[in-house]
């Protein structure tokens, strides 16, 4: 069989991961988008999304999500999230101040599209946190490989 089957955990873990990881990912997205209505928000959702990738990495022994995200691209996504958050803050200067919630009168409270820039900020934070956590994970795991090769 291919090399992928040698790496990672047992077939049971792999199967369960295959079945659940999509749900975990979707749950993370849900938490991010409903941050202004229900418990959760950009931070918790971002970590959940990152954990879904980490889950794949752990079960299939790395390299699988490496194909989608390299270490470099995660830090780029993270910086993009940061720039987006800062840009939202600076856009407020146009309307009245740093971090002015300039969109909030639109939308009915309690609906998905409401609360002005809060959902946008949630998305920015989730990008930053999710990518950041995954970058930390990848860095710590890749170096481990590098070290064992040395020995």
């Amino acid at each position: 069989m291919s090399k992928e089957h040698d790496r990672g955990m047992t077939i049971i873990v792999k199967t369960v991961t295959r079945l659940t990881v999509g749900l975990i990912f979707l749950y993370g997205i849900y938490i991010i988008l409903h941050g202004h209505l229900t418990p959760g928000g950009g931070f918790a959702g971002g970590v959940i999304v990152a954990l879904s990738f980490i889950n794949v990495d752990l079960a299939f022994g790395g390299k699988v999500s490496d194909r989608i995200f390299s270490k470099g691209s995660t830090s780029v996504i993270e910086a993009l999230g940061g720039v987006m958050f800062l840009a939202l803050a600076l856009l407020g200067l146009q309307w009245g101040g740093f971090f002015d919630n300039f969109l909030h009168p639109d939308g009915e409270p309690g609906m998905l599209i409401s609360a002005g820039i809060i959902p946008l900020e949630n998305i920015a934070i989730s990008l930053k946190v999710g990518a950041g956590l995954f970058a930390i994970f990848l860095t710590l795991i890749t170096l481990q490989k590098f070290e064992s090769e040395k020995k």
């Binding site: 830090s75 780029v76 910086a79 940061g82 720039v83 800062l86 600076l90």
Partner: peptide, 13 residues
Amino acid sequence: VALPLAGAFLTVL
């Protein structure tokens, strides 16, 4: 604060 922060983010980008 915003200038150095933007500088740091853009340096990474």
